[in-house]
Amino acid sequence: MTRVLITGMSGTGKSTLLDELAARGYRTVDTDYGDYYELVEGERLWRAERIEALLRCAPANNTDVLFVAGTTRNQAAFYPWLEHIVLLSAPAQVLIERLTHRTTNPYGKDPAELAETLQYLQAVEPLLRARATLEVVTTVPVTQVADTVLSHVPS
């Protein structure tokens, strides 16, 4: 099984991309939902046992692709399990527009959350970029983003 992490700041389109990939028949998991994270001193971190179980869910020689989306401080601990790390990015003004107007998730509408995301854009995104095997700027339609990701990830 090929395991692909879709990561990036809030508002870059991780969930939207997962929806598109799922519509195309790929297995997807959004770690923002379900039992994949825990709060540790107010910070959302991946639960190691749940993420490991997810990533080992099929033998390595299986030809399926698993797309997992999320961004947490402890995600680097799971990089050895992943064949690809795809960073979704967008300019700050695009993120502001998306976060303040989105209807699928309330995160980012609060000014403090929006400020936090913009701070992470400066401090965290460069760290994600350094480990990414592909970066896709998501100012294009999601179908094009999916095509770009799938051309990078052999199935």
Rank of each mutant, 00 (worst) to 15 (best):
A115Q: 13
S89F: 05
R56L: 13
E41Q: 12
I96N: 07
G42T: 03
A115Y: 04
H101P: 06
N62Y: 11
Y79P: 03
K109V: 02
L39Y: 05
R98C: 05
Y107A: 00
L114G: 00
F67I: 07
P111S: 03
R47M: 06
A112F: 02
A112K: 08
T117A: 11
S89H: 08
Y79N: 10
T63Q: 14
F78W: 05
A115P: 04
R44K: 14
L95Y: 03
E52D: 15
R50Y: 08
E83S: 12
A90G: 08
T63G: 14
H101V: 05
Q93G: 08
T63I: 12
V65M: 09
W46D: 02
R73C: 05
I96R: 15
N62I: 08
R50Q: 13
A112W: 01
L45N: 02
A76L: 12
L39N: 02
D64H: 11
P59V: 15
P106N: 04
P111Q: 02
Y107H: 00
L45K: 01
L95M: 06
T100V: 12
E43P: 00
A58Q: 14
Y107R: 00
L87S: 04
G42Q: 04
H101K: 13
S89C: 11
V65H: 08
T117P: 01
E97G: 11
Y107T: 00
D64N: 14
Y107D: 00
A48K: 13
Q119P: 00
A58T: 15
V40C: 01
T71R: 12
V86Q: 06
E113P: 00
Q119R: 15
A77W: 14
A77G: 10
Y107K: 00
N74P: 07
N61Q: 13
L87R: 04
E116D: 13
I85E: 10
